[in-house]
Amino acid sequence: MVYASLIFEFLKIGVFSIGGGLATLPFLYDLADKYDWFTRETLIDMIAVSESTPGPIGLNMATYAGYAAGGVPGGVAATLSLITPSFFFIILIVKILDKFKENKLVKSAFYGIRPAVTALIASAAIEILRIALFRTQDFIDTKNLSDILKYGNVALFIIIFYLIRKLGGHPVFYICGAAVFGYLLNL
């Protein structure tokens, strides 16, 4: 019965995968070896689709893997099983946090965590900037400094940055606008 094993396997992933993004990937490789649901090659396709469609990658991959194993019900079963452990962990963690909220130790811990997490996201931001604005490989190939920037993307970056600072507004608006511009200008 494919659904029972799907539910069991994705509950397991929900309990053991820490760190988000592609943290579920090693588990999916394991599933590819263990069952005949999908192959390691199809997983690469799944990553591409999951990264280029809306939604958190981890959820997208689970839905896709579940679909590959058991059609639409498989996709639903995999996703719901993946998020079920979080339900219990969250309730437990909030109970513990509330108990120690005024504790000095917990307060100073969060005081130190905030800059560390900010640095974590900053390093992710640097990586995204590299991918979005620079063509590192072309530069390495040609050694020509004028090849290093994606000029269209840099221009769009500056425009969006200016508009968002000046006008504010909802991120969705800028995401959709950027998609239209990318399409129209062949970015």
Partner: peptide
């Protein structure tokens, strides 16, 4: 284009 917006 979306990638650029996400970077911002």
């Amino acid at each position: 284009g979306i990638k650029v917006a996400v970077a911002v």
